[in-house]
């Protein structure tokens, strides 16, 4: 079964499955223990190393299982974890399991341009105003018309000493907002990179200006970024290309890492994101097989009632026109051949002396004949006329 087409072959919106986009991705930690080595952590010894890779590895038999930051002894106590996802994903949730008492202040950021710029997704703090200058999140989600970065309670310490940071995109969005119909929400959930800034350890009291009285380190595992590979409704899976980059396996005449544009010949109407109800597939230009390229013309698209705006370029086989649907000057349509036939257009072959021009009737192939001349190509004298010696008046009335 093809998720992107129905049983009859008609295109339909399709999306990749929900995955942990962070799984196996390299995590960049601003601080990791073991350099220089200590009794508990040695970056050069796999049995005693706590690298950031443990945050996104599949787990299994790895021992140890938690990433540890270096000992933090002075402010600022920020430690940043950055996960490049490789391409755009549409986020559903982000979670991080702490292996020790969770921090009381965490910022969650996203990038949509592979780490060049960052925007907040949410904050987690017991002191939202003090730490981030924000009000605590309302219980029923954001008050505004769109999603926004809210400040949620800090991750709660569990009886085992750890804790879980859990962020759901849904919690930041007003109820009733639909991904298919809301470009704002589509933008909100899109991320190429995720960054978690651990800002304040739990043991340091309640003010951000509290100096570190005792050495502290952050410790965490199982960083999950739940989301779908962003393909704009035009692919059901993502693959690695020949350079090892993650890309959508685009359908519906689309291309690009996110299926974000129409393929070169598929520009009969503008690109659109697919929805659950409408595939909005890119349509191939109608060129009767005589052109390999086309361009989109918005004016023609509007005039056609938003049905077709493609204009064929470089029509071959002596064809011409927006759809290569008629013959270029000096050629006429062969009625015995289909419009898509390579030999659908025949040369007029107007007689160099008998015809008054080189352009024949597009439909019948009749050349314009001089007085007294007849025939499709004007190559004979009409009845009652005979050939003269003058190329200007090749046929004259028979005496």
């Amino acid at each position: 079964a093809d998720p992107c087409h129905d049983e009859g072959g008609a295109p339909r919106g399709c999306v990749p499955g929900l995955v942990n986009a962070a799984l196996g991705r390299e995590v960049l930690a601003s601080s990791t223990c073991g350099r220089p080595p200590t009794r508990a952590c040695d970056a050069s010894d796999p049995r005693r190393a706590h690298p950031a890779a443990l945050l996104t590895s599949a787990g299994g038999t790895a021992n140890p299982v938690c990433w540890h930051s270096d000992w933090l002894t002075q402010v600022p106590l920020n430690v940043t974890l950055t996960v490049p996802l490789g391409k755009a994903f549409e986020l559903v949730f982000v979670s991080l399991r702490f292996c020790s008492t969770p921090p009381t202040s965490v910022a969650l950021l996203k990038s949509q341009d592979h780490g060049r710029s960052w925007a907040p997704l949410g904050f987690f703090s017991s002191h939202c105003g003090l730490d981030y200058g924000r009000q605590p999140a309302p219980a029923d989600g954001p008050a505004g018309p769109g999603p926004e970065a809210l400040c949620f309670p800090e991750p709660q310490a569990q009886p085992d000493g750890g804790g879980l940071l859990a962020f759901s995109v849904q919690d930041s969005s007003p109820p009733g907002l639909d991904l298919d119909s809301s470009p704002v929400l589509q933008d909100w959930v899109t991320a190429t990179d995720i960054r978690i800034v651990l800002t304040r350890p739990a043991m340091l009291g309640d003010t951000r200006d509290t100096p570190a009285m005792v050495p502290y380190s952050y410790s965490a595992t199982e960083l999950q970024v739940g989301g779908r590979c962003k393909c704009n409704g035009h692919s059901s899976r993502c693959l690695l290309d020949t350079q090892g980059h993650l890309i959508c396996d685009c359908r519906h005449g689309t291309e690009g890492p996110d299926c974000g544009r129409c393929k070169p010949f598929y520009c009969d109407r503008p690109w659109q994101r697919a929805t659950a109800r409408e595939a909005h597939a890119c349509l191939a230009c109608s060129c009767n097989g005589h052109a390999r390229r086309c361009r989109f013309n918005m004016e023609l698209y509007r005039l056609s009632g938003r049905r077709s705006g493609g204009v064929c370029l470089n029509c071959r086989h002596n064809t011409a026109g927006r759809h290569c649907h008629y013959c270029r000057e000096g050629f006429y349509r062969d009625p015995g051949r289909a419009p898509s036939d390579r030999r659908a257009c025949r040369a007029c072959d107007c007689h160099p002396v008998g015809a008054a021009g080189k352009t024949c009737n597009q439909t019948t192939g009749q050349c314009p004949c001089k007085d007294g001349v007849t025939g499709l190509t004007c190559n004979r004298c009409a009845p009652g006329f005979q050939q003269s010696r003058s190329p200007v008046a090749p046929c004259v009335k028979t005496p």
């Binding site: 190559n379 004979r380 004298c381 090749p394």
Partner: peptide, 23 residues
């Protein structure tokens, strides 16, 4: 009545050299 095709050899191009086709 089917008339014969125009015979190019019969034309006199003396005064119309510039119109003479390349045939």
């Amino acid at each position: 009545e089917v008339m014969p095709t125009l015979d190019m050899a019969l034309f006199d191009w003396t005064d119309y050299e510039d119109l003479k086709p390349d045939v």
